[in-house]
């Protein structure tokens, strides 16, 4: 069993959490962006996370895959725009206001984005802890028999 390969798994996990963090931050930061560079309303972004080598098939197949030492690792498959109904705010003086004086604001759900941030934080922490323990175990192995 190669413990060094475990670093890659934890790194993949941390990198996925970072993408989720960046996306949540972008959604929060753009919560009042009425026009993006192409002139359209900002749409909330969502990270699509997939896992490589997800074991499928019969029990024997799954076991064979797992024995090959290929543990699944996550990756960001895409970051997609989620078409969301805009939030209408009455602001007649705003340059982007419609005929009735309503401005379309991005439909960013601030509350659920904040919840996502908590989940990201916990996920990142757990990955970091896994990384740290792996490092510690490798160090213990290297130090084996050094006390003589």
């Amino acid at each position: 069993m190669d413990l060094f390969g475990v670093f890659d798994i934890s790194s993949a996990g941390m990198s996925v959490e970072q993408s989720r963090l960046a996306t949540a931050a972008s959604n929060l930061a753009n919560a009042r962006t009425t026009k993006t560079a192409d002139g359209t309303l900002y749409q909330p972004l969502s990270v699509v996370v997939r896992s490589s080598n997800v074991p499928t098939g019969t029990y024997a197949d799954v076991e064979a895959t797992m024995r090959a030492g290929t543990l699944p690792r996550p990756y960001v498959s895409s970051i997609t725009e989620v078409p969301t109904a805009p939030r209408l705010v009455y602001d007649p003086g705003h340059p982007d206001a419609d005929a009735k004086g309503f401005v379309s604001m991005p439909g960013v759900d601030t509350l659920s984005t904040m919840m996502d941030l908590i989940s990201v934080s916990r996920g990142y922490e757990a990955n970091l802890r896994a990384f740290d323990i792996t490092r510690h175990l490798i160090q213990k192995t290297i130090d084996m028999g050094r006390n003589r």
Binding site: L3, I9, S10, G13, M14, V16, R73, G123, A130
Partner: peptide, 12 residues
């Protein structure tokens, strides 16, 4: 250790 790390990494 590897399997627990993979579980944590793939939690999302």
């Amino acid at each position: 250790q590897a399997v627990y790390s993979a579980n944590i990494a793939n939690a999302a």
